[in-house]
Design a protein around this nucleic acid. Structure first.
Lengths: 137, 137
DNA sequence: TTACAAGTTTGAGCACGCTCTAAGTCAATA
DNA sequence: TATTGACTTAGAGCGTGCTCAAACTTGTAA
């Protein structure tokens, strides 16, 4: 029995490979309420559907950009509220958007600094090499 | 005795305020070798000089952009090598540069996604509001 | 039918990066 | 002289986010 329904199911391994989460982490996230309970096959194994997968991809993006678990839990809770949670969900995403803009600026400034230093090291290396060359003949 | 030398010294408090690190963290960083030992006044209090301060600002940028402590320790060790450490230092900074470029891309993609969702929520909110308005008269 | 691979659960363990505590020193002020 | 406040040290403690361990079930392949 390789397929359970319309053949759209993914095993936990497959989801792990596709999202970058470990299987441990996927189970952990389900445990702490970041996902609704994933449907199980008769043998107890999870099978993930398309909409589960898309939710996990969203979680991955949020997590990879530094959203704390507790905030993702709040977001998941708002999802369960349906209409009643829309404004809160928007507010939470707008908060994260602001965070990312700040993060992006810090990265830009640090990239500028790094490039200055790298250039400086490069010229220093050239100089040292030049001296060695002179010394060496 | 408010000033110790040319009046360029900073207390640990001042450095903390200026860099965003806590005084605890500044002492911790010194302990674990991220900074050379900071000179002390007769009473044992640290006084930070301009070059100490600049090094700490660099540490702050690296840390704020996600460089792990152990990598900063390697970088600090390379500083102590002088000329011999230049190429390694450049390589380490180039590694971090690459990391930041990836991070920046992840942020851009996530910002796109967030904006889509925020727009979607906004239109959803307008719709729900509209229905309430109709119902309410 | 025996072995193996892939999954399950609950709970413990761990790496990282601080953060705090306790006990003490010192200089300035009331 | 007593108190206050900012600092010192060494070491313990803690929050976050996984990550692993142990014991078990199930389905497939030899």
């Amino acid at each position: 029995m390789k397929e359970q329904g319309q053949g759209q199911e993914l095993t936990i391994q497959q989801v792990a490979e596709m999202t970058g989460f470990s299987v441990h982490t996927l189970r952990y996230y389900e445990r702490i309420g970041l996902m609704d309970p994933i449907p199980r096959a008769k043998n107890g194994h999870r099978f993930y559907q398309k909409n589960d997968f898309e939710w996990i991809v969203l979680l991955a993006r949020l997590r990879n950009t530094g959203m704390p678990i507790v905030q993702m839990q709040r977001f998941a809770a708002m999802m369960r509220l349906g209409d009643a949670g829309i404004s809160q969900r928007r507010a939470l995403l707008e908060d994260h958007e602001r965070m990312l803009l700040e993060q992006a600026q810090e990265i830009r400034q640090t990239l500028d600094l790094l490039r200055d230093k790298i250039d400086y090291y490069r010229s220093w290396e050239a100089e040292v090499k030049g001296e060695i060359h002179e010394k060496g003949g």
